[in-house]
Design a binder for these strands. Structure first.
Lengths: 344, 344
DNA sequence: ATGAAAGCGCTAACAG
DNA sequence: CTGTTAGCGCTTTCAT
């Protein structure tokens, strides 16, 4: 077992001083070519690698950023992570990813843990529990210490920092309008995970579209619940006693479940009922039929967040310069809605 | 902005020595209750938190483990990560997750980077590229330095370390046999991502089952290709010119695409064609119809890997004590196969 | 009970 | 050109 070698050992082995070794390895002009190459060769031979910890302790910079993800099984977050990861790597930053599983306690613990020298800044998405409790002290504390944070997707006005979000109201509005334009008269909306304001915004957008086109919202067509348990039954029940020819689902899982229900009932999609989903992921792409869906550009969200954070870390943007960036969405037409010939 | 406070500053503020503060904060018996509480109160008031870096540098232990994931969009890996994360958290370890995007270079870079003091050990899944190149020097180097690694899912015999794997041959064998028992006579197999040995093993299991039951493999029913491009066409073509009543797909995406093709052709699943998938994830669960699938217990895989690594880090298991753990699979029956009345 | 000093691995200012 | 020294934040002997 060849334990990792240190600068000190190299110095001893070659009978030079520690600082000479340090300088030689950093290719300093102060060191003679001869000693330099002697040291560098020895280092290479023994696979010397500098200790990251010691470096970070010295520079007060770790070149790593902490990523807080509520739920990695969520395809949107996984894609956002990729975007973050891409930019971080490009700019020479490491990322340390933590999953909170939507738990407040876990979120507080990990963020406190990491903000003690381990990371230079955070890219975080607040957990549902935190959002419900409206307790953001841990975040504000970290901000106060001068550690920059960029919040993405789920945000709150009580936190004053950079944010990267989706325009939920507008996107939901456009999705609903699309259903109306494709001649749906009775449009239902389905939303799991109540309690997060982004879902409320999506319902708002739906209602706004209806109102705008003089359709009176029908309460029986609005299914909002926490979690997916029993969703199948509720959809079936709704379908049993209501005329429905369009369904807007506020998240991917709802979309998939809705599709399953319709298929099971042998209802033709989109001939009899159209579906528009939200957050275009694998489920939308690979369902039968593939779902028309509001694409959220998760990857871009991640990229923008990472770019912003790194700019701040590197002083390109001042700490107090706070900005909220809105990432546009785009409706991806697939086979769960009727083809529209008039674009609008 | 309240910059983070250090032990030194506390010492100065209270006119005591640095070591007194250190001891007081660690609740040492050497310090009088009076000074202790004085210091502790001051620390709390100023939200003192020890610098993790300095601690790690001192102890030569970071209490964090590096996780290498080839592709986070893969549901299996995401679930495994959860399992790892759970155990790590329970045992007081942090994880730092890195995504290689199936790239050899990225894998080498991140692993070298992290193994310089940042992490105590790795839980890694080798990238496809690395596997194809069969270059495992970076892994063996790290192992050589005394840093423990647990490999999961994708492994190779040239690497001598702890491993946690699926029994691919046996699982594929059982899946194929299941199709035969449900009266399928012409069973096709579909596999994307050629080149990884685990997929080869799955094909092997399929062939083994056929042979065992005296079915001569039909080359026209074996679709193996790299990536999913054009898969739809190949499946259609196969269906055009062959009688097929059962399909075993070696991964989730293939399963989803196959389902789409059959649905599109209005082929009744499972009445006309049965499907069994591999790696039971959201796609299998939420497709129409839901797919019978070989469930891989990704979460368990992660848990086992993490437990093993931590045991090693904490000296409960010797470094040279190498073990390969095989995680069983389980066929989950859903609606893409006919109900079997005789269990076997 | 408290403090001085060395050291973890490294860099950097300053001397020589 | 090379070496000495101090210091990053903390722990841990060893004195006092």
């Amino acid at each position: 077992m060849n334990k990792r070698i240190t600068i000190k050992q190299i110095a001893k082995a070659l009978s030079v001083s520690i600082s000479t070794v340090s300088k030689a390895l950093n290719d300093s002009y102060e060191i003679s070519d001869e000693t330099k190459s002697k040291i560098q060769e020895y280092a290479k031979l023994h696979k010397y690698k500098p200790n990251t910890l010691a470096l970070s302790l010295q520079n007060k910079k770790t070149k790593t950023i902490g990523i807080i993800i509520p739920n990695i099984l969520n395809y949107y977050f996984a894609r956002a992570l990729r975007g973050i990861e891409k930019v971080a790597t490009e700019k020479g930053y490491n990322i340390i990813t933590c999953i909170t599983n939507e738990s407040f306690k876990k979120e507080v613990n990990t963020m406190e843990m990491l903000s003690n020298g381990t990371i230079d800044g955070f890219i975080a998405c607040i957990s549902v529990e935190t959002l419900k409790m409206k307790n953001f002290e841990h975040i504000n504390d970290i901000l106060n210490e001068g550690t920059p944070i960029v919040l993405y997707d789920r945000v709150h006005k009580d936190i004053n920092c950079d944010k990267v979000v989706t325009d939920n109201i507008k996107s939901a509005y456009k999705a609903t309008r699309f259903l109306m334009k494709s001649e749906c008269k009775n449009i239902a909306i389905i939303s799991t995970s109540e309690g997060i304001n982004i879902n409320k915004f999506r319902v708002k957008g739906y209602l706004k579209a209806l109102t705008k086109y003089d359709v009176v919202p029908n309460e029986d067509l609005i299914i909002i619940q926490d979690g997916e348990d029993g969703l199948t039954e509720r959809i079936n029940k709704m379908l049993d006693s209501n005329k429905v020819d369009g369904i807007f689902t506020v998240d991917e899982i709802s979309g998939a479940i809705t599709t399953q229900v319709l298929n099971k009932r042998n209802i033709k999609i989109p001939d009899e009922v159209s579906i528009v989903g939200f957050t275009n992921g694998i489920l939308s792409r690979y369902s039968s039929p593939p779902l028309t869906s509001v694409n959220r550009f998760a990857h871009t969200t991640g990229e923008v967040a990472a770019t912003r954070l790194i700019d701040k870390l590197e002083g390109k943007v001042k700490f107090d310069d706070i900005k909220t960036e809105i990432i546009r969405t785009q409706l991806v037409e697939r086979e769960s809605t009727k083809k529209l010939f008039i674009k609008f």
